[in-house]
Structures are given as structure tokens and as C-alpha cells.
């Protein structure tokens, strides 16, 4: 499966915010949610080759050839006007890469890494590729020591987690909202699958953490949070729960109206969760 290909929107060779230690992060293109607070909205959709971006590229790195958008990375100055112009939440810069190519890139940085995180987009949308990549890492003499983490919105059925089970060390799951109505409003989808994923992964001992991204006035009602905390407590009272305050950086205009939570609000969120008995609540 080393020849398997994934549609990659980008990599960050060193990241200190995507799991334990210094990590290589692979962002896969394409997401099954459409979250109001998405910080990487250009990773949601596949490019449809409309060509609008080619008109705004200041460096001539984008062109429309035979009906397909071509990106010449040698000319790209990362002005990112293409991403700003794209009406479809896509990027012309996502590319298909083989497992071997990604492994080679990871190998070049490996001495400095604790692990590899596959994020997105939604990593589980390309589960076969993720599995092939993680197996290649796991079975490698020098790279086998790297911790392998899937960063997911949790909207994946059990057979996806079954496929990944042997290859990954853990998954970090975003729970956008515990109340299904709020969840639908925020993401366009139900959270039923997400909650099932959390239960399943916790039972298997491979739930790395659950992240709660909180937006004032959207999903931060303290009674909802308390119900969420009680449910998480039933799953595992010692579960690492990361409370992340919404930041406007990178979001689309419709989310730019939402306030960022104050330190006091963040404190109240944590209090609500710890009050339930959750022992491992972190504020970010």
C-alpha cells in the first residue's frame, strides 16, 4: 500500500500544538462537516477547476490548462489570494501524494519529532491512505518509534475506526456541540456519529483527547456544557478534555462576528466541566 495516494492540502514539519511533543502534521483535503468556526476553510472541498483563482494570482503560479487548474509551486509566493477568492472552500494547491513521498518528508525531520498527526480537512475521509501511511511508519525501523495520531471531527462510522485501529496510536476528537440541535446548526450534521466514535475509541483505549471549541453565544451555554461534561465523565472521568477558546484567525466572514471568549468565560467553562468530576480539563 506504499503506493497509496492521499490528497494533501499541506504539511507543517514542526508543530507544538497538534499533540504530544514536536510533530509533523499532515493536512488532508476534504471534510464532511462545514463548521461555522472552521480555521482552515480552504480544506473543506475538493477543487472543481473553475479557474477563478488563476485570475487573481499575483505571481502567475496558477493557470487553467485544458480545463484543469495548474499550480506551479516554484512561482508561488504564498500570497494566498487564490484561497481568499475561492467561493467553494477549496484550494488549488492541494496535491496527490504517495505514502512513500510523505514518509520521505517525515524521515527528513524525524530526529526532531515525537510523532505524526494527520489532520485536515477530515483525516478519516481518506482512511485507507491514513492507514497505509501509518502502517508504513509503524513498520519502519527508525520511524516506528513516532507516535501516530489522527485528528478528527469524529464523524466516521465504526468500520473506519476498525480500519485504522492497528495502525494508529490514538485519535483526538473534536466535539463541536453536545446538543444535537446546536451541532446541526454549527456543522450541518448530527453529532450522533461523533458521540459513538468517542465511546468506541475510549473503550478501545485509543482516545487521546476530546476537544471542545467554544464560541460565545453559539455553543457555550453552561448547562449544555455541564450535560456534555456529565456524558464525558460517564465515558471516562480521567479523559483529557481540552477546552479551546474560539479565535477569529483564519475563519470565514460569517464567523468573524462571533466574540472570542474572555479569560473569565474560559474559566467558567473549565469550572463547569471540573465541577462534574472530570479530572483532566485543560484550557487552551
Amino acid at each position: 500500500m506504499a503506493g497509496a495516494k492521499g490528497l494533501v492540502s499541506g504539511v507543517i514539519p514542526f508543530s507544538s500544538v497538534d499533540g504530544p511533543g514536536n510533530r509533523f502534521v499532515l493536512f488532508l483535503q476534504g471534510c464532511n462537516f462545514d463548521c461555522i468556526a472552521c480555521h482552515n476553510p480552504h480544506t473543506i472541498s475538493p477543487c472543481n477547476d473553475c479557474g477563478l483563482c488563476a485570475h487573481v494570482c499575483p505571481s502567475g503560479a496558477l493557470s487553467l490548462e485544458h480545463g484543469f487548474v495548474r499550480w506551479n509551486d516554484a512561482l508561488c509566493t504564498s500570497a494566498e489570494l487564490c484561497i481568499a477568492r475561492c467561493p467553494y472552500d477549496a484550494t488549488p494547491k492541494a496535491r496527490w501524494h504517495t505514502v512513500d513521498e510523505i514518509v520521505a518528508d517525515i524521515r527528513a525531520h524525524a530526529p526532531y519529532l515525537s510523532g505524526v498527526t494527520v489532520s485536515g480537512g477530515e483525516a478519516t475521509q481518506q482512511a485507507a491512505f491514513v492507514r497505509a501511511l501509518f502502517e508504513a511508519l509503524r513498520d519502519d525501523d527508525t520511524l516506528g518509534r513516532l507516535h501516530r495520531l489522527v485528528d478528527s471531527n469524529g464523524a466516521a462510522p465504526q468500520d473506519v475506526w476498525d480500519e485504522l485501529a492497528d495502525a494508529m496510536d490514538g485519535a483526538a476528537i473534536d466535539l463541536k456541540a453536545f446538543d444535537d440541535e446546536v451541532h446541526r446548526r454549527m456543522t450541518g450534521a448530527s453529532n450522533a456519529l461523533v458521540l459513538r466514535s468517542i465511546e468506541l475509541l475510549a473503550a478501545r483505549g485509543s482516545l487521546h483527547e476530546v476537544r471542545l471549541l467554544l464560541l460565545p453565544g453559539v455553543n457555550d451555554r453552561l448547562d449544555d456544557l455541564a450535560r456534555c461534561g456529565a456524558w464525558l465523565h460517564r465515558v471516562d472521568p480521567n479523559l483529557r478534555v481540552k477546552v479551546i477558546g474560539f479565535r477569529r484567525h483564519g475563519v470565514r466572514p460569517r464567523a468573524a462576528q462571533v466574540d472570542e471568549p474572555s479569560a473569565a468565560e474560559m474559566g467558567a467553562y473549565a469550572e463547569a466541566l471540573r465541577g462534574i468530576g472530570l479530572t483532566n480539563v485543560e484550557l487552551v
Binding site: 508543530s15 507544538s16 511533543g21 519529532l113 515525537s114
Partner: peptide
Amino acid sequence: RNPRAVID
């Protein structure tokens, strides 16, 4: 928040 990354 992640001194482990600096150690790496």
C-alpha cells in the same frame, strides 16, 4: 503549553 516539543 508543550515544552516536550522544545525537548524534541
